[in-house]
């Protein structure tokens, strides 16, 4: 009975009765696969199947309304050599990722640190800070944003009161429209904040106390204690937020008229993909775009993981 399950341990502390490699292997693996059964079913039927179908479609002309026709590498060729709009989309998306993710994480971390120390009313503030993240994507948000960043919006009113300057209509100006979407992303910083808060709770308080005794400033404590100990959490947030930012769709879809206006300045990659698939009836090409995006995201994630060993230290290195 004792060998019916092999629990993975740091060392193989459990006795395993061996009688023949293959049968033993099956007996060892069976419970794991039983537990994995729902996920495996979902993976093959709902994820892998449709993903492979889309891989096939990426080599076809498919307008959704009539059956797909084989087109070879045409879609990829077009994407790499001719599609000027795709270039805008890629550059907009990279800009969005490179700005929104660090800003969002910085704000989330900053407020989490203030929240972590403050004693009274933490729950209240935490809830308030999380509220915007609950809103999801809705028509109301789009109206809201266009009001705040419009010509006579709140931002310009504040600007006029404080500096006497008359600001442009931020949301509809090609130089600034993307920034209003970055602002939206930063505004909805609730989830990484919660995760940072959780991480901060894990840092032993006596480390700070000892540092204070030694006369280390708050700034130094942040660099020497908080950041290194928080590295795994930062890494976790960074990877997830980057992936999410690459896939960002709804923000642009609801706020910028669904077309990446003005002048393609908010044409997110996913939005372009959606337009090609459903507005321009090019599902084949859109599938090719989707696969290219997948490769881009995978490359970024791989880089993050590859570099992580230089700056992320886990206390327990077992994986």
């Amino acid at each position: 009975m004792t060998d019916s399950v092999a629990i993975s341990g740091r060392q193989d502390v459990l006795p395993v009765v061996s009688n023949g490699g293959f049968r033993r292997e099956i007996r060892r693996s069976l419970p794991g696969y039983l537990f994995l059964l729902p996920w495996l079913t979902g993976f093959f039927v709902l994820t892998l199947g449709p993903t492979l179908a889309s891989l096939y479609l990426s080599f076809t002309d498919y307008d959704l309304l009539s059956p797909p026709r084989w087109a070879g590498l045409k879609n990829f060729e077009y994407a790499f050599t001719q599609d000027m709009r795709l270039r805008s989309a890629v550059s907009v998306t990279f800009n969005y990722v490179l700005w929104s993710v660090p800003l969002k994480l910085a704000v989330a971390l900053g407020l989490a640190m203030v929240l972590d120390r403050s004693v009274r009313g933490v729950g209240f503030y935490r809830a308030i800070f999380y509220l915007p993240s609950l809103l999801g994507a809705s028509v109301a948000i789009s109206v809201l944003w266009r009001q705040i960043f419009g010509a006579e919006g709140l931002v310009n009113k504040l600007l006029y009161l404080t500096t006497g300057l008359q600001g442009p209509s931020w949301v509809s100006h090609p130089d600034y429209a993307l920034w209003t979407l970055i602002a939206l992303a930063v505004w909805q910083f609730g989830s990484p904040m919660i995760i940072f808060l959780a991480g901060l709770r894990q840092i032993p308080q006596d480390l700070y106390e000892a540092a204070s005794m030694d006369g280390a400033s708050g700034w130094r404590q942040f660099w020497k204690i908080t950041l290194p100990l928080l590295a795994p959490v930062i890494f976790f947030n960074l990877v997830f937020q980057t992936i999410e930012a690459f896939k960002a769709f709804t923000q642009a879809f609801i706020i910028s008229g669904g077309e990446g206006w003005p002048i393609d300045s908010t044409l997110f990659y996913s939005l372009y993909l959606y337009i090609e698939a459903f507005a321009n009836f090019r599902m084949g090409y859109a599938s090719a775009l989707a696969w290219l995006l997948l490769i881009i995201i995978a490359a970024f994630t791989a880089i993050a993981f590859a570099t992580s060993k230089y700056w992320v230290y886990y206390e327990d290195e077992s994986r």
């Binding site: 449709p50 698939a277 997948l294 995201i297």
Partner: peptide
């Protein structure tokens, strides 16, 4: 699967 853009699998 985390990295899959969901529009990829939408139609299939």
């Amino acid at each position: 699967t985390l990295m899959l853009p969901y529009h990829v699998t939408l139609v299939p």
